[in-house]
Design a protein around this nucleic acid. Structure first.
Lengths: 216, 216
DNA sequence: TAAGTATTTGAATCACGATTCAACAAATAT
DNA sequence: ATATTTGTTGAATCGTGATTCAAATACTTA
């Protein structure tokens, strides 16, 4: 799906990816759509669980907030998880199931932020400039949107810039300075959790990505 | 594209939509992708121009801001223009041209907001709580994200709720009360520009929409 | 080990959509 | 009015990918 879009998935490719033949895939999923929905469901679950886990040990609400913001953004334009979510976004308008899936994820993320905000406010760390739900919704919205920008390879908005922009809002909303990089010791401006990252971005002449048969 | 996704477009449907046969379409666009790119380009241009035009006559920056926020959101989950933009969002990760197109639109919208903010600040109407570019970027980001939520038919976020949420942020950022519905008189909650709308939503067993072969 | 069940394969079939193209029609130039 | 170009059609062709299924293989249980 990442390679060819929600409507461009080909059974044979799925089979190959799974190390099987098309027949075997069909044996388990006579209707391909069920497979895709399950896959999406699982992917979203994983995405959400990862975020929760990342802040599970933390005590400081500010640190939690910062970490959560970062964990909602793609690590690079090639981040598979977020790529998939973006794909889903477009399809959600056409497909009710995808729409519901995405809506549910959104709501859960809002709840997650809301919890952080409320706890922070209760502890006196945050001075919320409005309803916690309103702030939480806007935080998730910002994450989403900058995810799209990063995936689309905006020249001046990468993961770090996006974090910065969202933090600008978060500061207004919580009245907390929210200093970045609180705990993990990092000598220079080196990024932490990041995979290989291609240095030259294998683009083709017509501007499409490496994968053949794109724009269609 | 709205019906079948960026990768699901079929030549014959395009032809039919245009009142032609496939051959005639191919005569003008031997490569379908060129047609799609041009179409997207034109659509985005139209979208942007409409927004600019809507505020062209206005004097009050606050009113401009409110109007612009509303004009960036879909009027309903069926809003064709925004549906298309959402579609593009997913494809942008795969296709550089779409990515660039979308990035350009984003930047132009940011500039548009920035202008409104700066003028408002210069006139003493707004007290900006930060860099105008930062605020503008977040405003566009929020628009984008709520556009997706509306398209995905979030049960509690419609156009009005989205405007409300974005305005909450805008108030923090401008220090202006930004009272809603300043000029246009609207009697009830009736939406304006809407096409036929199917009454029963011919959904299939799996929950996908009328169009066959959805989930890809 | 044997019988039974679950899974996988590979080849055959089927359906659909893109592509090609000769003939036709419309518009424009001479 | 005729010639030329521009645009359109409809049918024929071609290729791809989904679907089917009998046979082969792997796994389970008694």
């Amino acid at each position: 799906m990442i390679q060819h879009g929600a409507e461009g998935v080909h059974l044979n490719q799925i089979a190959e990816e799974a190390g099987l033949t098309s027949g075997a895939v069909l044996y388990h999923y006579p209707d391909l759509r069920d497979l895709l929905i399950e896959a999406h469901h699982a992917g979203m679950e994983r995405f959400y669980e990862q975020r929760v886990k990342k802040i599970s040990g933390m005590a400081d609400p500010a640190q939690k907030l910062i970490t959560t913001i970062r964990s909602g953004l793609p690590e690079s334009p090639d981040d598979a998880g977020v790529r998939l979510l973006c794909e889903l976004g477009g399809a959600a308008g056409r497909n009710r199931v995808y729409g519901t899936l995405l809506t549910t994820l959104y709501d859960r993320q809002v709840a997650m932020y809301q919890m952080i905000l409320e706890v922070g406010a209760a502890q006196g760390v945050f001075k919320l400039a409005g309803d916690s739900e309103q702030i939480a919704r806007n935080l998730v919205a910002l994450e989403d949107a900058y995810g799209y920008r990063i995936i689309a390879r905006h020249h001046s908005i990468g993961p770090d810039e996006a974090v910065g922009l969202i933090l600008d809002f978060a500061r207004m909303a919580t009245g907390h300075p929210l200093k970045e990089t609180p705990a993990p010791p990092r000598p220079k401006a080196t990024r932490t959790t990041r995979t290989t990252r291609p240095r030259k971005s294998t683009g083709t002449a017509d501007g499409s990505t490496a994968q053949p048969q794109d724009a269609g």
